[in-house]
Design a protein around this nucleic acid. Structure first.
Length: 570
RNA sequence: UACCCGGUGGUGUAAUUGGCAACACAACUGGUUUUGGUCCAGUCGUUCGAGGUUCGAGUCCUCGCCGGGUAGCCA
């Protein structure tokens, strides 16, 4: 497919454009060539990517698909104290897994030399100076939200002195934090970012790429717009909190005097119910080993979602659904789950598995007979093929599908009730065997109607209830981990006085259990996804499965309108 | 109390740029169904408030109200 066909396809989708796409279309109407469009995704390699980043990734890379141009991956690696090589690797893996490929792989650290030269230019122009104030003093001089700042006593150093000091800074002659290079703008500006922001600070740590070449590092403000300019970025997209930095972004570019300059556009980052998106908190969960690691399936990290079994298609689709705007919103978790189910419903082969078992014996079914039933793998996908399941005298069914006293509208097992064993025959409960000690139901004795195979309804009555089952003689034991949201509060980051976000962690967010699966499940291999009928979607976890010993993760439960109905009536 | 940004059903995004408020999710009804899944149909908002301009305002203007962001040598 050519690039232009790609564009046509996407625009023909009739979906309305978001405000960023509209801006791009306007720019194109003004004469910007679509081929010139340049975007970038600029993560800092100080942690794993999460679903919030996925929004930015889908946006930036998606714009190329929809409107043309190119998109770079640029690591914003200007703070060696926090950044690591392992993160630059995980980030690349995650972007590729999401289905995107960057045009160029860039690093802000590639521009350290150019940035230094431009800083010298600004010093020569009288637009920057070396300041000897320490951190606390800088804060004092900056003023507050309501009061203007005061000029640094070092603000009016001569160009020569500034040049000498800057060279000495670079040469490592001063202690960490002793001096900074600051832009000379306006200490009285109502925009605090414009009150002589720091451009360079001394930091004597080893950088994951440039090693010990530098002991001064550019700040985000000084590096970002310039990196955009070097790469020819036309549309620099970032989140809302950078709106205040835009005047500074533009100021630097103007002082350097470049002909073609990028423009920054801000959009709202993703917030989701029951989800902590802050990198700091995620890091804490990982470092304090509250979760298994960055890829814990309860985490909103890309690696975690991947290990849970969520598909990249579902994530991309989700991003399409939620849109892009400037309003700070929180997405309901169910919207994401719906995207997950929507994709899995189409592609996941069906299987049967029983979680909390109870034995069902068909007393009038021959003891030694095993009847092979051929069934479709996926009713939503004809090409998914078929498999066979042995039907026999004794099967396991779900304990929850039996009630001693059937509630109103109950369509499942109960004394005297008739249900269909999915794909198999209809059975009627004749006798309920209970444990005399505990009173617990241990076995259901049933009779089947031989004329009800292949979906045939019994003579004169309609059986509506259908339950899943597995053959008792050859069911396979499968380990399953049931994941649910890590936090039990919709907004885990909104803490009340004296509370840590750790208090909101749901101890039952990860439940290890064992299910009985139909025989074919023994051969499930790593990375496969299934729908366990009437239960949910499951993924064969590659990190915990071996050859012939699959371990399943629950990706998402199926919708359960009966449970909902029952709950609302209680 | 300074500056910046925002406000459309329960939630989130649209609205041919001034012309019948649409789509998805949620909820509730009902239908289909060998998954109480899927699918289909229906119900649920006079667009934060008050004025103004206009034949006509979610959209433009004014004044309010409410929410978010900003005082790192983090990004």
């Amino acid at each position: 497919m050519t690039a232009s066909e790609d564009i046509d396809e996407s625009l023909a989708g009739k979906r309305s454009l978001n405000f960023i796409e509209k801006k791009i279309q306007e720019d194109i109407a003004q004469g910007l060539s679509p081929a010139e469009l340049q975007f970038r995704f600029p993560p800092e390699p100080n942690g794993f990517l999460h679903i919030g980043h996925a929004k930015a990734i889908c946006l930036n890379f998606g714009l190329v698909k929809g409107h043309g141009g190119r998109c770079n991956l640029r690591f914003d690696d200007t703070n060696p104290a926090k950044e690591e090589q392992k993160f630059v690797e995980s980030i690349q893996e995650d972007i590729r897994w999401l289905g995107f490929e960057w045009d160029e792989l860039c690093f802000a650290s590639d521009y350290f030399g150019q940035l230094y030269d431009w800083a010298v230019q600004l010093i020569k122009q009288g637009d920057a100076y070396i300041c000897d104030l320490d951190g606390d003093q800088v804060r004092e001089f900056r003023g507050t939200l309501n009061e203007p700042g005061k000029n640094s006593p070092f603000r009016d150093r001569s160009v020569e002195e500034n040049l000498d000091l800057f060279a000495a800074m670079k040469a490592g002659e001063f202690e960490e934090g002793a001096r900074t290079l600051r832009a000379k703008i306006d200490m009285g500006s109502p925009h605090i970012v414009m009150r002589d922001p720091v451009m360079y600070r001394i930091q004597k740590s080893t950088h994951h790429r440039t090693g010990d070449d530098w002991c001064i590092y550019p700040t985000y403000d000084w590096a970002h717009g310039q990196g955009d300019a070097i790469e020819g970025v036309t549309h620099s997209l970032c989140s809302l909190e950078f709106r205040n930095h835009r005047p500074l972004y533009d100021w630097f570019l103007e002082k350097i005097g470049l002909e073609k300059v990028p423009g920054q556009t801000e959009f709202a980052r993703l917030n989701m119910q029951y989800t902590m998106m802050s990198k700091r908190y995620l890091r804490q969960l990982v470092e304090e080993e509250i979760v298994e690691g960055w890829d814990d399936p309860r985490l909103p990290t890309i690696a975690g979602l991947r290990r849970r079994g969520v598909t990249p298609e579902a994530i991309r689709n989700f991003m399409e659904t939620i849109g892009v705007a400037k309003f700070n919103s929180t997405i309901e978790l169910t919207v994401f789950e719906n995207s997950i189910r929507d994709h899995l419903n189409k592609v996941a082969p069906r299987r049967m598995a029983v979680f909390d078992r109870i034995k069902l014996v068909i007393t009038n079914f021959p003891e030694d007979l095993q009847e092979l039933i051929e069934v479709d793998n996926n009713p939503e996908d004809e090409t998914a093929g078929t498999r066979s399941i042995p039907f026999e005298r004794e099967v396991w069914v779900e304990r929850d599908d039996f009630r001693m006293e059937a509630p109103r509208k109950w369509r499942r097992l109960a004394p005297g009730a008739e249900v269909r064993l999915r794909y198999g025959y209809c059975v009627t409960v004749k006798e309920v065997v209970t444990d005399p000690q505990s009173g617990e139901v241990t076995e259901l004795q049933c009779e089947y109607d031989p004329d009800t195979s292949k979906g045939r309804q019994p003579e004169g009555r309609k059986v509506r209830g259908i339950i899943h089952w597995v053959p008792a003689s050859c069911a396979v034991k499968i380990p399953v981990t049931l994941y649910s949201p890590l936090f039990n509060s919709e907004a885990p980051d909104q803490l009340t006085e004296g509370q840590s976000f750790l208090d909101g962690i749901d101890p039952d967010s990860k439940v290890e259990t064992e299910a009985l699966g139909e025989p074919s499940l023994a051969e499930a291999s790593s990375g496969e996804r299934f729908q366990f009928e009437r239960i949910g979607y499951f993924y064969v976890d590659p990190t915990r499965s071996g050859e012939g010993s699959p371990h399943f993760n629950r990706i998402a439960a199926l919708r359960d309108s009966w449970a909902k109905q029952e709950k609302s009536k209680s």
